[in-house]
């Protein structure tokens, strides 16, 4: 008996999910951050964020097709974290690192928060 593991399968699946997002195929929720709107797949949001996991496993909220985030959330920070969810790449612009980290705290993405902390500490002169 043998087993063939396609080592790049996970990243290929994620790339296709991102293609579906950019073509708005089977996206099932709009995330409202201040005046900006982001279409996404609930399953991807839940897989990556503790906050969205809690929201979409709540029987009263799982059928919502629009979610407004707290107005303190920075849309640019959210956009970068949404991109991370669909690409595994976190773009850290110096001017946005705090907004990204605060948004990751809000979205309950603890591993990203820890990584941002370490990045800030390592880049402190």
């Amino acid at each position: 008996d043998s087993c063939i593991q396609f080592t790049r399968h996970a990243s290929d699946v994620l790339l296709n999910l991102n293609r579906l997002r950019s073509r708005d195929i089977l996206t099932d929720v709009t995330i409202l951050v201040n005046r900006q709107q982001f279409r996404a797949h609930k399953t991807v949001l839940m897989a990556c964020s503790g906050l969205f996991y809690t929201i979409f496993t709540d029987s009263h909220k799982c059928n919502l097709n629009a979610i407004s985030l707290d107005p303190k959330v920075d849309p640019e920070g959210f956009a970068i974290l949404l991109e991370f969810m669909y690409t595994s790449r976190l773009t850290l612009k110096e001017s946005l690192i705090m907004a990204i980290m605060n948004t990751a705290i809000y979205l309950q993405m603890d591993h990203v928060v820890d990584t941002c902390h370490r990045f800030i500490k390592s880049s402190d002169p």
């Binding site: 839940m46 897989a47 990556c48 964020s49 503790g50 996991y53 496993t57 969810m85 595994s88 790449r89 773009t91 309950q108 993405m109 603890d110 591993h111 990203v112 990584t115 990045f119």
Partner: peptide
């Protein structure tokens, strides 16, 4: 992403969804 200094993070990236709640 050419030209950007890329740091490889080998640790866990996201939470783990429990087998059941």
């Amino acid at each position: 992403y050419e030209g950007v200094n890329t740091i490889k993070e080998m640790g866990r990236s996201i939470h783990e969804i429990p087998r059941q709640d």
